[in-house]
Amino acid sequence: MISEPLRQTAQASDQLCETARGVIRKEAEALIAMSGRIDHLFAHACHIILNCKGHVVVMGVGKSGHIARKVAATFASTGTPAFFVHPGEAKHGDAGMITPSDVVLAISYSGETEEIVSILPVIRRLKIPLISMTGKCASSLARHADVNINVGIETEACPLGLAPTSSTTVALATGDAMALALLNERGFTMEDFALSHPGGTLGRRLLLTVDEIMHKGENIPRVGKEALLKTVLLEMTRKKLGMTTIVDNDGILAGVFTDGDVRRVLDTGVDIHKILIHEVMNRNPKIIPPGTLAAGALDRMKQHKITSLVVVNEQREPVGVIHMHDILRAGIA
């Protein structure tokens, strides 16, 4: 039997969930309605930005300011140079950041935000394009804009109809839509995205090469073809990579020998003081050229179920060894 406190808790939880579902439904409905309003005006705004020689200066105050900051960041990371300027600060000197080569994108649901309206003369004096996102097409901002994107909604998702919810969601989604439409039009690639996100996982996967993290020079485990197995084991122990390269008299890679090979060979009962490494080495090691992406090297290791690769130049000389742990430590997974 369910106790009364538990029943009340369950009812309260149901009410919380139903309210949340209602908010999400209302915001989703507002987004669907907005998608139906994407038209030639939206395309015109995109063409203005594509023809911009400078930056997109994004403005907004309050909740619209938070949206404007995010829109500017999305633009900048997807191939459209952009930055955020607070209209209030622009009135006190930051308007100097705006140049005649720029485009201004102003976000204000009412279209009457005092801080934005007060700097419209500055924008006009610079003779630069003004794109607005408002929910009121007859507002001061919309009337002064070269293009106004209507981001109006029927009602906020807030049960009180007060807190900006659906309106900010629609403005954010419209900003994202514009940024990604521009991305597509510019032919912006994953590699371009990585260049603006060098510290992120994607950036590392698309930019980091084995050359930057491989073991080089004296840190490469290396023995000659005529070395005794005992010498090879000592070299492997010193370099701590679980393997060694084996080179001929000209320094050309002849093979490799790994921890797995050690176990295999010792099981045959050979004398490590007498057998030469060329008799038991792997003559067909997996190799990669310099400049290989670390992510590609990791994929190859996984494919062949090995933990290291030898990096060789065009003459097939070992110039490095890359171990799986090196790649994982670099944040490639």
Rank of each mutant, 00 (worst) to 15 (best):
A179F: 02
A177W: 10
T201C: 06
L206T: 05
T209V: 01
I213R: 08
M178K: 03
F188V: 05
P198G: 11
D211E: 05
D211C: 06
A179M: 02
L182W: 10
L182V: 09
P198C: 00
D192N: 15
R204P: 05
A179R: 02
A194N: 00
L208M: 03
T209E: 06
E212W: 08
V210H: 10
T201V: 14
G187I: 01
T189E: 08
S196M: 13
E191S: 14
L183D: 01
D192K: 05
I213M: 02
L182R: 06
N184C: 08
E185T: 14
L182Q: 02
R205E: 14
A179T: 01
E191G: 13
G187A: 02
D211V: 01
E185Q: 14
D192Y: 07
A177R: 10
F193L: 09
M178W: 10
D192P: 13
G187E: 09
E191L: 12
F188Y: 13
G199R: 05
D192E: 03
L208F: 05
F188Q: 08
E185I: 11
G200N: 06
A177K: 07
I213S: 04
P198R: 05
E212C: 12
L180Y: 12
S196N: 14
L183S: 13
F193P: 00
R205Q: 15
T201W: 10
S196D: 11
G200S: 03
L195E: 08
G187R: 11
A177S: 12
